[in-house]
Nucleic acid binder design. Sequence first.
DNA 1: CTGCCTTATGCAAAACATTGCATATACGAA
DNA 2: TTCGTATATGCAATGTTTTGCATAAGGCAG
Lengths: 183, 183
Amino acid sequence: MALSHAIMTALIEDEMSGYELAKAFDASLGFFWHASHQQIYQELRKLADKGWLCQRRVSQRGKPDKQLYALTAAGRDVLDDWVFATSRVRESKDDLLVKLYNLSDNNLPHLRAELEARREHMMGRLFLYERIRRRHYADPDTLPLRRKGVYLALLAGIRHGEQYLAWCDESLRLLADVQSPVA
Amino acid sequence: MALSHAIMTALIEDEMSGYELAKAFDASLGFFWHASHQQIYQELRKLADKGWLCQRRVSQRGKPDKQLYALTAAGRDVLDDWVFATSRVRESKDDLLVKLYNLSDNNLPHLRAELEARREHMMGRLFLYERIRRRHYADPDTLPLRRKGVYLALLAGIRHGEQYLAWCDESLRLLADVQSPVA
DNA sequence: CTGCCTTATGCAAAACATTGCATATACGAA
DNA sequence: TTCGTATATGCAATGTTTTGCATAAGGCAG
């Protein structure tokens, strides 16, 4: 219901190939909307069939041909309408939280390790976010409107990351002084 | 790949019917793992077919019969093993963040309204979480181990909610003094 | 006694997502 | 010259999730 819209969103300013889109997703929109290249290629074709994107083949030197996709006027309209539809909140579906319901002496060390891993992962993610913020969004108030929106999405990622990190720490602290079962 | 595990997790302590499970999901695990009743019924049958759950029909007075499902030893083993599998992080897929990439003078009022709505929604959610916390998890350090895990999951929800609320406020602030386009 | 709500379960189809595989060109390193 | 990596696209099968519909009994309000 919305990968299509995420893809069209990525094409607002520039036409792109499936491959470039996959990269762009990894570097921006994909922070909150992951999509594999297979999904992207399939969706691109569907969107082109519907007339929301148009396609043109481009030859390149030293590289295979690529298919560039651009938003059509019809696609632009669909996207604009979609923004006005009310969207519901989706829960995040984190395995780790379900696993924590199963916490026992037996799996405690493993779950501690998973918490550590999440902590590391999120730390790396935060460094990346912060670098992007410093480079492109240092002064949010002066940004043009659309960039403010992008900034707020990034900020959501940053705030979420900070909070998640703090939660990992708090969790590890609570689980730190649990006694190992007596042998 | 993990709805099945969430369901088995919900059955660790008590046998339940599909209907009861759906309710339990809405009130606890469903905070981070939403599942509709159709999904639950389908999954329950699959799990029973695999021998991870066992089924028994119970007649009730003044109500239709219900199918109770309980975790088998095999199911218990599968669940235990699953906890040890490393789980990857899933991104949250929030429509609103994608919509913010489309921010314009045109949709600004609508997106502000959506932010307000999220704010209200999350506020209600937080009240609920806090009530549960105060009632059942007032003193985390003294909880038995498994309950500590459940508490940490709840805490993740609380921290996430607080952060989300703050982000909504920050976003509304940034978008508050944007000039309406001159007519 | 009619209509609506809650309890209780389910089918079928469609939409969406993941996994594994397959193909091809070109560049640089060993 | 072979191997790995990056570019570039795709099929097929499977698995997961959503949407829409259907059934049926009992309780309660008007």
